[in-house]
Computed example of a mutant assay.
Amino acid sequence: MGTLTALRQLRARRQQADRRFGARLLVSAAVAAAAAVPFALILVLVEGQWAPLRRIDIGAAQRLHEVAVRHPAWTAVLHLLSDRVWDPVTLRVAVAALTVWLLHRRAWRLAAWATVTAVAGGLIGLLVKTVVERVRPALQDPVAHAPGYSFPSGHAMTATTSFAIFVLVLLPLVPTVWRTTCWCVAVFSVLGVGFTRVALGVHWFSDVLGGWLLGLAVVAVTTAAFEAWRTEAGLGHHPVSEGLEPELTEATHGPGRSRP
């Protein structure tokens, strides 16, 4: 009788776990859809050459190009930021270094999340560029040149995924009073990348907007998957705004190992 009761209790717990897991999968799918819909809308408008969006693209490109041509020093600063500080290669190397550090700290799953987010972002962006085949702005007396297709902006997308990785991984190591500053720096950098690409005349505004939205969609999907794993692993709930893995603090200041 006792064995039968135990089996029934075990079956009930498994059924409850299955229902919870199914609910989390639905939540993850909803997050992915909510993140992808704005990008899909921009893509449709770009492909359909929607007149209002086209006017915004042309107006922003022309006005910012006039400023860049008249102010060479300002343009040099834009080049420094776009081609050195916020360059995709620079950001990817930084993400790779962060991943190596996470592996050293034996934060295996966090390292896997960072890798998947960065690689998926790069591949998806390249795939969309190849499919859309949008031509870059053709301006008189251009101040910069860039190869390949235009939509979405690879700089904007890489900045979005990279700074999301930096913040969500490292935030648990930052004192609480500085966390808002970290978020502000990340947001400023992502917006700054987009501004430099439009100001240098190598992207339309909608290219940058598409890069931001697609990058956010990738981060939303991978983060939802990571949070679902944490819940199933019994690691508790916490706001994503505090970082993905609070246990990283223990791994850094403790015995050198994060929770399994």
Rank of each mutant, 00 (worst) to 15 (best):
R14K: 08
W50S: 11
Q62E: 14
A32P: 02
A23Q: 10
L43E: 11
W50R: 06
Q15F: 03
L78G: 08
Q15C: 03
L25A: 07
A29H: 09
R70I: 01
W74Y: 15
A61Q: 04
R14D: 11
Q15Y: 02
A34Y: 05
V27Y: 10
L80N: 07
L53R: 01
L80V: 06
A34V: 09
P38Y: 11
F21A: 15
R55H: 12
L25H: 03
A33Q: 01
A73S: 06
R19F: 11
A73N: 07
L41G: 12
A17I: 08
L10T: 04
Q62I: 05
L81A: 05
F39Q: 04
R70C: 08
Q16H: 11
A40S: 13
A61G: 04
H71F: 14
R19C: 01
R70G: 11
A30N: 01
I42Q: 10
A60I: 04
I42C: 04
V69F: 03
R20V: 10
D18Y: 08
L45T: 09
H79G: 12
G22S: 13
L80E: 07
F21N: 04
A32K: 05
V77L: 12
H79E: 05
A29T: 11
A12S: 14
G59E: 14
L78I: 06
F39V: 07
L43S: 06
Q16C: 07
R70P: 01
W50Q: 07
L78M: 13
A76C: 02
L43N: 02
V31H: 00
R54L: 10
R13T: 03
L64H: 05
A35D: 00
E47N: 15
